[in-house]
């Protein structure tokens, strides 16, 4: 089981924007699901009309109508 990660910041603004401080890989990027990898953890953002934008130093911005954020495949 992966260890929890607490140093990386994930910021959720309402249900339209999520900002990730450090994203290693973008695993999936469809308008319904954006899945990424942070320190060996998989984070999935579910929603509608999702797009992902890269910024410097591995930062990532996911935009769209966000329905759920899941860590490591959810429960």
């Amino acid at each position: 089981m992966n260890l929890p990660f607490s140093d990386d910041r994930i910021e959720l603004c309402g249900n339209t924007d999520v900002f990730f401080d450090r994203c290693r890989r973008l695993l999936e990027c469809s308008d319904m699901l954006v899945q990424l990898e942070i320190r060996g953890h998989s984070v999935a953002v579910w929603g509608r009309g999702l797009t992902a934008s890269d910024y410097a130093d591995g930062r990532l911005h996911v935009q769209g109508q966000i329905a759920a954020v899941e860590f490591d495949g959810g429960l």
Binding site: L26, C29, S30, D31, T51, A52, S53, D54, Y55, A56
Partner: peptide, 8 residues
């Protein structure tokens, strides 16, 4: 710096 990434 890739913006508005989406796979359809």
């Amino acid at each position: 710096r890739c913006r508005h990434q989406v796979v359809k």
